[in-house]
Each structure stands twice: as structure tokens, then as C-alpha cells.
């Protein structure tokens, strides 16, 4: 017969894993971090990604990127739209996770999820249009056909801001994916539950394995390795501290990585700015092609 102590059911305290190459590995370092509610109760643990986890994720992103880049823009748009459907389907869970650490109200959480779904839809729509805005045919003074076209830059590390865990990570992830890059997303750690579960949305949304990878843990610790890695071609980061931002730019100077740093106090609800194609401009390379035109 069960004693009194075991008759009340214990809740399962989950340890969330990383999302790399379409699988859910633990950190190779074996490290994890507790996530606490406002009253100090431990809600769950997240994996605390290491330098090696980062390198592994970059490697799988590198391998997955050409196929994603070569998919038609129409196809990429549909996959991102599917991501919107997946976030919509997990609306209740997202709201619960956003509220779990007691930092925001249910009303604000509901608003954030609604904005997040809109952000997915907006970028799904950009996939087959951004080249029209960032590229074009050039009217040169000579008998040549000249066109410029934004090409995916390759592997992008996206660093999510601490505030607005869901909207924030989507704001740095979506522009990079829409233009055909593979992404390693680093979630913030104030409320990491969204980032830690976001792999589940990605896994069910037709984003090919390896194209979007999610690491959790402490971003500051990874900044020097993000900056110095030669197979990371660009980085888009929001909410970095000043020393982290400087370390990122300084490290990137050595390998000419393209760095986009969004203001720490950026208003993530500002659709005009965050649905703008100009956010994605350092996540592409504009290639200009010339050919003679003659009979």
C-alpha cells in the first residue's frame, strides 16, 4: 500500500533538450539550467548549450542550407506559413509557457502569440517577393542584360532578445529563413521555455531538418565562438548587452561576418519595422550578373 507521501501525484519536471538537425539531443556538456517560477519553484530544466553544441549545430546547418536555398521561394513561403499554423495550433501551450515565469500577464501573452502568428504569415509572404524589392534589372549604359539578385548568405546565427520570448525569436529567425539561409537560433534565458519547446513546432512544420536549429543556455558564453566561427556567414542579434555586441563585432571583423544588431529596446510589436525587408538586407548577398546582349 502506498504511503501518504506518494499518494499525491508528483508532477513531471521536464528537462527540455536542444533541437539540432531535426533531432532533440541533450547538450553534449551534460549541463542544464533550472527554470524557476516567480515563487522560486523549479518548473523545468533546459539544456545549457556548449561551444561544441554550437559547432555541431553550425555543421548541420551548413549541410542543410543548399537544399533550402535551392527550394523554390514559393515552397519556402509555404513552409513558413505552415509554421504559422503550428504556432496557432499550440496557442494555448505558448500562452501558458509565456506566463509560467510570472513575468507577463495572460492578456499580454495572448497578444504576443497573436503578433507572433502575424509575423510568421508576413515572412511567409516575403519569401517569393523579397528579391523584387532587394534586386532588379539594372539600366546600364551599354548592350548588356544586368540583373541583381539577393542570394542567401549561408549559415546565420540568430540571437533572440530576452523580452517577448516567442515574438523575439521569430523576429530574428524568420527573415533569415525566408531568404534561404539555414539558422542556428540562440534563445534568451530569462524565460527560455518558449525557445526550449520551439523545436517541437519546427519539427512538425515541414522546415527541413538542419535548416532551423535551436540552442538554449547562456548566449554570452557563446558569443566569442559565434563571432569567430568561419562557417557562420551572418549574425542577427537583438537584446545583446553592450560588451556582447562589441565582442561580436570585434570577432566578426576578423572573418568579415555580417552582423545586424537590433536595439536592446526595440519595440517588437512594431510591425512596420519588423515586417520590413530592410531587416533582412545583411542576411543576403546581392549578386549582380552581366551578359552581353547582341545578335
Amino acid at each position: 500500500m502506498a504511503s501518504k507521501a506518494t499518494s499525491a501525484k508528483l508532477s513531471v519536471i521536464k528537462t527540455y533538450k536542444l533541437y539540432v538537425g531535426g533531432a532533440f539531443p541533450r547538450s553534449e556538456s551534460g549541463r542544464s539550467l533550472p527554470v524557476k517560477a516567480a515563487d522560486g519553484r523549479v518548473l523545468a530544466h533546459i539544456s545549457h548549450a556548449s561551444r561544441k553544441d554550437l559547432r555541431d549545430a553550425i555543421e548541420v546547418a551548413h549541410a542543410a542550407q543548399p537544399k533550402w536555398a535551392n527550394a523554390t521561394a514559393y515552397n519556402r513561403g509555404q513552409v513558413l506559413y505552415r509554421l504559422a499554423e503550428m504556432v496557432q495550433a499550440r496557442e494555448a501551450e505558448c500562452i501558458a509557457l509565456l506566463c509560467a515565469t510570472g513575468e507577463i500577464s495572460r492578456t499580454d501573452a495572448r497578444k504576443e502569440v497573436a503578433l507572433s502568428i502575424d509575423r510568421c504569415v508576413a515572412w511567409a509572404g516575403w519569401a517569393d517577393k523579397i528579391a523584387v524589392v532587394l534586386g532588379g534589372k539594372q539600366p546600364v549604359a551599354g548592350p548588356y542584360l544586368v540583373y541583381s539578385t539577393p542570394e542567401p548568405i549561408g549559415v546565420v546565427v540568430a540571437v533572440a532578445p530576452e523580452k517577448n520570448p516567442l515574438l523575439g525569436l521569430l523576429s530574428v529567425l524568420l527573415p533569415a529563413l525566408a531568404v534561404g539561409n539555414a539558422v542556428v537560433l540562440c534563445g534568451g534565458h530569462r524565460n527560455p521555455l518558449i525557445a526550449a519547446t520551439f523545436g517541437e513546432a519546427l519539427a512538425t512544420s515541414d522546415v527541413p531538418p538542419g535548416v532551423a536549429n535551436v540552442l538554449t543556455g547562456r548566449v554570452s558564453e557563446l558569443i566569442p565562438w559565434i563571432a569567430s566561427h568561419r562557417e557562420v556567414h551572418a549574425c542577427i542579434a537583438a537584446g545583446l548587452s553592450k560588451p556582447d555586441a562589441q565582442a561580436l563585432e570585434l570577432g566578426a571583423a576578423e572573418n568579415m561576418k555580417r552582423v545586424t544588431i537590433l536595439d536592446r529596446d526595440i519595440d517588437l510589436a512594431d510591425n512596420a519595422a519588423l515586417h520590413s525587408p530592410w531587416i533582412a538586407e545583411r542576411l543576403v548577398e546581392v549578386k549582380t550578373v552581366w551578359h552581353p546582349s547582341a545578335i
Binding site: G142, Y144, V146, S148, M256, R258, K287, T288, W290, P292
Partner: peptide, 27 residues
């Protein structure tokens, strides 16, 4: 992987045609 690709020509420049590099050729 190059910022300018010349097909069946080379070293053409025009103020209306963007010029610049990938990777360590600058940004």
C-alpha cells in the same frame, strides 16, 4: 559565390550596377 558575375564578358562597370563582394572581399 561572388558579388559580380560576368558571363561572356569581364570587367564591366556601370554606376547603376551594384559592385561589391562576398565574404572577405568586404561588405
Amino acid at each position: 559565390k561572388a558579388g559580380v558575375v560576368w558571363l561572356n564578358t569581364f570587367n564591366r562597370f556601370d554606376p547603376s550596377a551594384p559592385f561589391g563582394g562576398y565574404r572577405e572581399s568586404g561588405f
